[in-house]
Amino acid sequence: MPYDAMSERTEEELLAAYAAGEPAAARALTARLGPRLFGTAMRMLGDRAEAEDVAQEALLRLWRAAPGWREGEAKVSTWCYRVVTNLCIDRIRRRRGRQVGLDDVPEPPDPAPSAAQAMQSRARDAALQAALDALPERQKQAVVLRHLEGLSNPEIAGIMDIGVRAVESLTARGRKALEGLLLGRRAELGYDDD
């Protein structure tokens, strides 16, 4: 089946096709889920190599769960986000004690003069990542899924296995902590000039 036709199918349909041995479904699901899982892991962990490991582990678990996947039991994306964020939390807990503080984040590399805009963008992103890394893990998970991955509160509730109100509470507390860490750096990062 051509890739274009695959792109119209839901992830649940693609997973069923994967389990039935369609190679195009394997490619389509990898293309669809891989970047999202990697992006989430990257935001949670702030480390590319670790994010690659974690996203790979989540995908591997999905492939192994595919033959026994029961239709209607869970949304594939919800299941994947749950696995990848839980794996990230495990990693964060393992490396606790050697946490990097906001002030310890290395400065972005020296840019070429013509790349001032890019430098500012990288600096902002690095500041956001460092602030996210300073949040408690559950707040970080909720904030990343809500504000960076753009998921709805009910979807996040399903991923985190908690109620919608608990998600709202976690994201509100996370945002408040981020405001304390980031708003004082508005001028330094050029947000006052925008």
Binding site: R27, T30, F38, R43, L128, H147, L148
Partner: peptide, 24 residues
């Protein structure tokens, strides 16, 4: 901040994607 974060969403490199496809 979030707007910038969404625009600068981390992307996996091509080698990793190729490895993931081979794994699948």
């Amino acid at each position: 901040w979030f707007e910038a974060g969404r625009e600068a969403a981390p992307r996996p490199d091509g080698d990793w994607m190729a490895r993931m496809e081979a794994l699948a």
